[in-house]
Design a protein around this nucleic acid. Structure first.
Lengths: 203, 203
DNA sequence: CTCTTTAGTGAGTGATTACTCACTCACATT
DNA sequence: AATGTGAGTGAGTAATCACTCACTAAAGAG
């Protein structure tokens, strides 16, 4: 039982590694088996089809997301909102999640890229992650709006814009870090938040 | 000769279609052949390896980009900057490129996906497209800065942020259009520009 | 100790893949 | 009319793929 759980975990971790390196289609089950140090047949005991490995990854990501992002950030939102202004709150939330984001980047990468080819992945992602993210975003945004800090901007577009800014930063850092000038990631995030909040703030 | 050029074109167009639908690895040369209405062997006369099809697509995208974006937008930048402010200029440039963007979305999709797996694609993209985009972005930004319209923000981060906002919008529209409320794309872009310019503007 | 169960194995399999090559045939050249 | 050329063909091939299954080993139950 303990051994079994361990094996399944090892297979999933290997799958995440290989999928994020090569993409779902280019990854082979034999390579995943080698990485997980199990026989190829063992994979199919736990995941009867290759695609179920992908589902396993998405489900694990949803789980991790639920643990680390939703609960935690909502708590902080409510707690910190009593003392600080929205800018500082947002900054605190994002900064707190930078390392988490980098740690789970392989998951993000796999989900983000395979979303376009697999409808089931897309639906899972949207229902379990995107909706929650949108909810949190709107919540924070509406809080600031109520206090008169923000202008009257569609909160969905605002939240999506910020995610896009952050996403592009991560992408550039991942793929073109050597070609572009290096800036400390915390400094960069401060700039992002600065641009974004100024963008939606009354002034 | 004319027939030959036609064949190569047809193969490339079929490849773009299939690659953007399934990704490079999941796409098969036989399917591309069927789509292009040539024998499978014909593909390998023009593109000896499957991967050269991918290169062909990237090169074609670079070509289209050079024709439609770089030259055109730089001209417009210089010309329009004499009368309008940066907000209007930016709006004009983006609006003008929306339909172009949607038309060439399969190219963008393929390049964006494969960039992470193929160093050669990455280098081509960076040298021929990203550098130009950064240059244009900086140019527009510095123009506004010189006039005292903008605050002192790293122009690279600013430009990248805007691209990220737009990119996320396109992504959401492509993959989650049915799940989210539909807003006219022109209105959305106005919001994006509004947030962005407010974000970098002095006030 | 025997029997049952169950996790793990890896050689084997049919299907599919990228790629080859001997071939065709509509032309142009002589 | 005879010959040469090269774009286009598609059956063929070796390699590789996801997936299967008869098996082993270990451990727990009786």
């Amino acid at each position: 039982m303990t051994k079994a759980k361990n094996t399944e975990e090892r297979i999933l971790e290997a799958a995440i590694k290989i999928f994020s390196e090569k993409g779902f289609s280019a990854a082979t089950t034999s390579e995943i088996a080698k990485e997980a140090k199990v026989a190829e047949g063992t994979i199919f005991r736990y995941f009867p089809k290759k695609k179920e490995l992908l589902h396993g990854i998405v489900l694990k990501a949803i789980d991790l997301f639920g643990q680390n992002v939703v609960v935690n950030s909502l708590e902080k939102t409510i707690e910190a909102n009593k003392r600080k202004d929205t800018a500082e709150l947002l900054k605190a939330i994002i900064m707190d999640r930078v390392s988490l984001f980098e740690e789970y980047f392989p998951y993000i990468k796999v989900i983000f890229y395979e979303i376009q080819f697999h409808d089931d992945v897309r639906e899972l992602f949207f229902d379990k992650i995107a909706k929650e993210l949108i909810k949190i975003g709107k919540q924070i945004f509406n809080e600031g709006k109520k206090r008169g800090e923000f202008r009257d901007i569609n909160p969905f577009i605002a939240a999506r814009s910020f995610v896009g800014m952050a996403f592009m930063m991560i992408m550039q850092r991942q793929f073109f870090s050597s070609e572009t000038v290096y800036v400390n990631i915390e400094d960069e995030i401060e700039v992002l938040i600065d641009i974004f909040l100024n963008g939606i703030r009354k002034c």
